[in-house]
């Protein structure tokens, strides 16, 4: 392990350590995605004062009910590891709260108080329930729900430092898993590389042009399938929806002459497919069998995605991994994601050279030795298999 400053042994944080504390309560806040330190401080203070108000109200209520002896605090064991933070009831050892460490946004300590800020899950469809805009917020900036847990302990500072250390140990593991040696690269240095990387925004420009977004009416016979194969656009894509990968000869989709392979389907008969899992999109399309008219909203896209990665030096890892020519993982916020790399895509070309028949080792070699501008062409792996006849299309 790289030495990570803090009160614990990094090895102990992997197994997990326990601190005794009193759980005072939890509250929810709305927050922008990456708030400034000052805003975080205000959020922590707001959480503490809300929970203290709740405590006071509970005490008054208890007094009124003359349950003077009833405790207003819950004694807990705070379990901290590089994977999770759990809050266990000290008496029963029952888990009251359990958060994956990566979902913890930050930790605050003030005197004997510790505040844990965790991001709440937002459904993929970004429902209004979990994502809101604050009226009057500049340019309607998105607000995310956070849950704030407040604790009291003599060891408040030690608890906060231990969680901070767990953050660092887990982050170094994450960097290492993405091929970055934390010893070679300070976080500051990597942030600098990221900030010099332009967001590859051809996708965004393409999607925002109204001439690329079309509403189509397709005629079909009752009982006839639409005659399409759809695949996922791939994690990391700007528009997470299905892509038309193949059309059945003589089927309604092909007959219309209005669709092309590569088109992204955004809605079917008014039902949005954006953000839905592939299986759900497929069943929505299958559900059209008895219809005679189908309304599709599509974005015309070429079947091949263009990627541009700017890598100033070999010491900066690309931030994605490849297996047999297929991109299988992507580092969130890394230079590859910014450059347009999508999980599940097959690499077709690197710097103008076709790599479809190139051995895996050669592809890795070409990528690992490339610096400056790296141009790639990719397409969803499933679409590539269909187009090259390696897979038989199952039309729906």
């Amino acid at each position: 392990f790289v030495a990570v400053p803090g009160p614990c042994e990094p090895e102990d944080l992997i197994d997990g350590i326990i601190f005794a504390a009193n759980y005072l309560g939890s509250t929810q806040l709305l927050s922008e995605r990456n708030p400034s330190k000052n805003i975080r401080m205000m959020q922590a203070q707001e959480a503490v004062s809300r929970v203290k108000r709740m405590q006071k109200a509970a005490k008054i209520k208890k007094k009124a009910n003359s349950e003077v002896d009833a405790p207003t605090l819950t004694e807990v064991d705070l379990f901290i590891s590089t994977q999770r933070i759990k809050v266990l009831n000290a008496d029963t050892q029952e888990a009251m709260l359990d958060h994956a460490l990566r979902t913890i946004s930050y930790i605050a300590d003030i005197g004997s108080i510790v505040v844990l800020m965790a991001r709440r899950r937002m459904p993929r469809a970004a429902s209004q329930d979990c994502i809101e805009t604050t009226p009057g917020a500049p340019d309607g900036r998105k607000q995310y729900k956070m849950v704030c847990h407040v604790f009291e302990s003599e060891d408040a500072q030690l608890i906060a430092q231990s969680i901070g250390q767990a953050f660092s140990v887990a982050y170094q593991e994450f960097l290492r898993a993405n091929g970055i040696n934390p010893e070679d690269l300070s976080q500051k240095e990597y942030s600098d590389v990221i900030s010099t990387q332009e967001m590859y925004n051809d996708d965004l420009v393409h999607f925002s042009k109204s001439e690329n977004c079309k509403e189509l009416q397709l005629e079909k016979h009752k009982g006839e399938i639409l005659g399409v194969v759809v695949v996922e656009s791939g994690w990391g894509s700007i528009l997470p929806t299905v892509i038309l990968a193949n059309m059945m000869n003589g089927g309604p989709a092909a007959r219309s002459g209005k669709l092309s392979i590569g088109d992204q389907i955004t809605s079917v008969n008014g039902t949005s497919l954006v953000g839905l899992p592939l299986a759900t999109c497929q069943s929505i399309i299958k559900g059209l069998k008895q219809q005679t008219q189908v309304k599709l909203n599509i974005v015309s896209c070429p079947p091949v995605t263009t990627v541009l990665i700017k890598r100033p030096d070999l010491k900066y890892q690309l931030g994605f991994s490849v297996q047999n020519g297929i991109i299988c993982s992507l580092m969130r916020g890394g230079i590859a994601e910014r450059g347009g790399v999508r999980v599940g895509h097959r690499i077709i070309e690197i710097n103008g050279q076709s790599v479809v028949a190139t051995a895996h080792e050669k592809i890795v070699q070409a990528l690992s030795s490339s610096v400056g501008e790296i141009h790639m062409k990719t397409m969803p792996a499933a679409m590539f298999r269909l187009l090259t006849g390696q897979e038989t299309p199952l039309y729906i």
Binding site: A100, R102, T103, S105, Y106, A108, R119, R121, Y144
Partner: peptide, 21 residues
């Protein structure tokens, strides 16, 4: 007493809206 904030460096790599109930 002073208020100390320690931000999780993983935060910037997480997709917006990813979290837990």
């Amino acid at each position: 007493s002073a208020l100390t904030i320690t931000v999780n460096p993983m935060e910037k790599h997480e997709a917006p809206g990813r979290g837990e109930d």
